[in-house]
Design a binder for these strands. Structure first.
Lengths: 334, 334
DNA sequence: TTGAAAGCGGTACCAG
DNA sequence: CTGGTACCGCTTTCAA
């Protein structure tokens, strides 16, 4: 910039104004500067700009696992929205480990990002105090903290659990198990919905029909497979299983088939997420659609509005409505 | 930092040195400063640091599609390696559009990242000149440019094509089709391997047995589905299909089954990528493993070494070896 | 419409 | 071991 200014015999201020196409610049001067900028392929140094303006035009996303299709889709939707407004996106994965998550938050905070989005693996809202202290706007994605007023974008998880369970009931299942997720709002909400649906029906509820996989967010398939093995040893064994997510459901189906039982005839299975390959599975998987991409897009828009706002607005909670997508895995001649 | 310095009656330089635990600082002073830093929860401003050191401790990754499991896994492996060395990762998606890709490169370049990694959708190496001009180290991922000396991490694509095709041949297929990808090195290499394998056999080669999907990187399933519909109208129709990637292969299988034909009995199918859900598909999918995660990890290590190097080293090409993972979709009683 | 000066939050260099 | 000074590349303010 200094070079351009010197060459053209104008000041850096002038060049700077042209770059940001500030109004008060002579048309002739503007053209000259613009021309030289193109020639030199000049790009302003964002780090320097960030230093003085305090805005980086970058946001951060922390997810438990990038490879998990749900988070990949969220990231995809997010990235699209942000790109259009010229924001960059830093992504990091917490591997489902709260310590790593805190560390990542710290790292991103020190980059002075304009906003953070987090699908948290925490059970407590503690580490968000620090973000608030730094006055960095943030949005919780997919998992919230009950009673904590914070910006949130996700799906109504109680509805997810209720819909899934009711679907199994109407498919004729009488002994419905649930493979639950970790201690996040998402898992808790779905469990709650499951319980509500059962309570609303005349079906019996068995204590040991609710089991938790080892690490449902990261090694989902294995978690599901293991959990189902346990359920299969129960007597009476379940005839319907509602799974915390689709990869778990896939593990569950595989476990059932290995035993020689049939899906959905012997045991019906439903998952959550409606991943795009669900319909091509060995047993096409019924699933509760979570609108993953929409979650990313809404979060993107919310975060942009947060950044633009001069004063931090009231936290908003955006709750998308889930829907059952029925497929083979629950199609019983009930 | 200024505050801390004032409060403690030392200079900012001293504080700065403590932060970076520079050697020549009195133990007592160090402790005092450290203490205060903890108390205030102080984090150095990376933008400021970047401005003076010229290093951002951040790298960028551009992929055609984040949701594509292959790239998600690459990103996952990469992210792990970089995190351990305290680097952040900016991810952006080019949607398979060369224009968008160039735009993203520009954007990331203006952030003065320490290095870039790109799974390019370009057919020409033109836009990489700009990166070189800025002297930013970069690594091509998955797709290279023949004859262009650049850092590269990927799989030996000719071997991929050869292995897949030979696998179909040994499964007893006599009329082998190929659904190819776009004009990238990856797709070209696989096609080359396919041709080599056929030439090395006594099988006939049909011109119209090679078809290309619409947008193989982004809407893979649809691309595969459409392409297979075309192939099915041929006479004689193929009895084996080698697909550019797994999502395409899934679309292909679905198209075949819709017609009432059987996989693998009537038509065997093999894909590339060995995605983790392949084994749970309606017809468990044979696939050529591309070591996606390893690609990410190797790329991460390479990029770190590039950053550390004072003088740009000779470009290295890291070529991982693929392997066939046979499953139901090619298991014929040949 | 233009530009001089100050400074964003740090680090490098070198003198004390 | 400690700190003064200059400066990284850009924006802001305000005077010309």
């Amino acid at each position: 910039m200094k070079d351009i200014a010197r060459e053209l015999g104008v000041s850096v201020v002038t060049v700077s104004k042209v770059v940001r196409n500030h109004s008060d610049i002579g048309e002739e001067t503007r053209q000259r500067v613009l021309k030289r900028i193109k020639e030199l392929n000049y790009e302003p140094n964002m780090a320097a700009r960030a230093l003085v303006t305090g805005r980086t035009y970058a946001t951060g996303l922390i997810v438990p696992d990038l490879v998990h299709p749900f988070f990949a889709e969220v990231a995809g939707g997010l990235s699209d929205v942000l790109r259009r407004k010229n924001y960059s996106l830093l992504i990091s994965s917490s591997q489902g480990d709260p310590d790593l998550e805190r560390q990542e938050i710290k790292r991103l905070l020190s980059r002075r990002l304009d906003a953070l989005m987090i699908a948290s693996t925490e059970w407590s809202a503690e580490s968000f105090r620090r973000i608030e202290a730094q006055k960095v706007p943030y949005v919780l994605i997919d998992r919230g903290f009950p009673g904590m007023p914070a910006n949130f974008v996700g799906v109504d998880d109680v509805a997810v659990g209720r819909l899934a369970t009711e679907h199994l009931i109407s498919a004729g299942c009488r002994r419905i198990a649930h493979i639950r997720g970790p201690a996040t709002s998402t898992a808790v909400g779905r469990l709650e919905g499951y319980t509500q649906a059962l309570t609303g029906s005349d079906l019996a509820q068995f204590q040991d029909y609710v089991v938790m996989g080892r690490s449902p967010d990261v090694d989902s398939w294995i978690s599901g497979h293991e959990a189902m093995k346990k359920l299969l040893q129960l007597d009476p064994r379940p005839d319907g299983v509602f799974c915390y997510n689709d990869p778990i459901a896939i593990g569950v189906i595989d476990a059932i088939l290995e035993t020689g039982l049939l899906v959905p005839q012997d045991i019906a299975v439903i998952g959550c997420g409606n991943l795009h390959y669900d319909k091509s599975l060995r047993v096409p998987l019924s699933s509760v659609d979570q609108q993953s991409r929409a979650i990313g897009e809404r979060a993107g828009k919310l975060v942009l509005s947060l950044i633009e706002a001069k004063i931090p607005p009231q936290p908003r909670s955006i709750m998308l409505q889930p829907a059952v997508v029925p497929r083979e895995s629950t199609r019983r001649s009930a």
